[in-house]
Every structure is written in C-alpha cells, then in structure tokens.
Amino acid sequence: MRIAFEQVTHTYVAPSFTEVALKDLTFAVEQGEFFSIIGHTGSGKSTLIQHINGLLTPTSGRVLVDGEDITDKRVRARTRRRVGMVFQYPEKQLFAKTVAEDVAFAPRNAGLTGPELDAAVRLALIQVDLDYDEFADASPFELSGGQQRRVALAGVIASAPELLVLDEPTAGLDPISRDEVMDIVVRLHDEGKTIVMVSHSMDDVARFSDRVLALNAGEMLFLGTPGEVFSHATELRVVNLGVPHVTQLVNELNAHGFALPATLYDVEAFADAVADELERLGVPRRDTQAGA
C-alpha cells in the first residue's frame, strides 16, 4: 500500500480564526516502510496523520492511496479498512464489557462474523502478547495502563490493516511498557505492515525507521533516512527538535577533534567507532598495554 501526498495544504477555518495546519506537503509512504514523523507540538503531525485514513481531506493538493484520490468516498471507505489508526492514549477508546468484545469491534464493523471474527480477535491478542484465556473475559477498565494500551492496539490491528499509523505509541508509559509496545510495533513491521509512527523519542526513531519526516509549523523541514535527517542537529535544535543521545555525543566529540561517522545511534556501534578511532590515534587498548 502506498500513500502519496501531493502538495497537500490543510487550513482550519473557524468563525474567529483561520489556521494553516499543513503547507504544501509532498512525500510518499512506500509499501512496507517504517516511516516516522517528528515535529514540535503543534507542528501539524496530528492533522497530517488524519489525512492518511481520510478523517481529514486536503484543502488543496491531493492524497493518493495506491494512485486513487482519497476525496472519493469509496476510496476513503476502502482506505479506512486498510489503514489502522492508533491515536495518542488509545486506551481512551475502550468501551466494551470484555477485552474480547472490544477487540472484536473493528473486525465486526468490517463484516466479519462467527469463527472468522473469533480468529481475528485471537490473533490480535497474540500479536500484542496478551494471553487469550487470561484476558479475553476481563474488563478492559480493570487492567493496568500498559495492558490497556495493548488491548487498544489489538483493537486496531484486529481488522488486519495493511498500514498502521501510531501517534506516540509509548506516551505516558513506563520504560518496561514502552519496550513492550515498541517490540510489538517492530514485530508487526517485520510481518509486513507499513508503519507510520509519530514520536518524540529520537532514539526510537533512529533505531527503527527507514525514513524520517521532520515537520515544522506545517511545513516539511527534512525528509530522508535517520542518518540524513539527524545530521542537521543545529537546524533541528532551532525548531525545538532533538537528536538521538548518541548522535549528540558524536557531534560534541567531533567538534573536539574526533572523526566519528555522523550516522551512529547505537551504543555498541558507537563504542566500536570510538575504540577504532582511539586505536588509530595511538591510544593503546587495555590488553595491549602490557606489550606485545
């Protein structure tokens, strides 16, 4: 599934004000990609992702889903079935008496019934690491924050969307739950889903993404691989965006005479590069100090 934005502009018009949320955006999310979007609060990220499943349509420009214009009602309806949208704090959408019932909502709306429906619910729960027997009959409102997040996620993937949009999937979670959720997202990506993720964690973005879109005040600032985008540390800082922790360290060290590659985000890779550099400069490793 390929989603293309062509010069998309979106303007909100209200009686007392007009706001241009998106300005002339042109880019595409390719089939099977892990595509991340970064931007300061209010930069238009939320407006942008709502164009992906047709909740919003452009004021000017086009959004094409596999070549078809999303302003067509039928295309929009079809797209909504193929795109799963996980909003911020998705546990807000939980409403049913049991977890199984809530997860069944989307596939049931898509027309599934009986054993097919049951299978979809079971699969979704497996995909979010929730044991069916333990959780199916539980009330969603009595679960922990991390569990509720996963039930909400299951509720979205139960209709087997080809593309999954996640708006800050780890917001408000503690470190363990954060890792659990990102593990699930990566697994879904490995299984073939296209992922569009909005995130404030530059480390996550660098680690997992194929490409990153940096938004500033509704306009596209950078688009490219994490390496390309995060090499613009200064410009990113100006618009209140950070870079991965390791990148920051690399930039500082390079400013003091090191010559480390700019595309490092991983602790191990960083350590390799630093160790190699130090050795190259003649600083001996511990096990060579005693002499050859």
Partner: peptide
C-alpha cells in the same frame, strides 16, 4: 557507553553524565 568501551579495552571513569563522559573521552584522546 562506558561499559561498551571497557569491553573493547578502553576504561573511562564512571559517570552518569553524558557531558562528563565526553570530557573523559577527549582527555583519553
């Protein structure tokens, strides 16, 4: 990072501050 470097034969004084770590690495260099 300090642990990863130690595993590769480079010992840096332990710190939780990335800024201090940077200083140590520069000193090592």
């Amino acid at each position: 990072i300090a642990d990863a470097l130690a595993a590769r034969g480079y010992d840096v004084p332990e710190t939780i501050d990335l800024g201090k770590l940077e200083g140590e690495l520069c000193a090592l260099r």
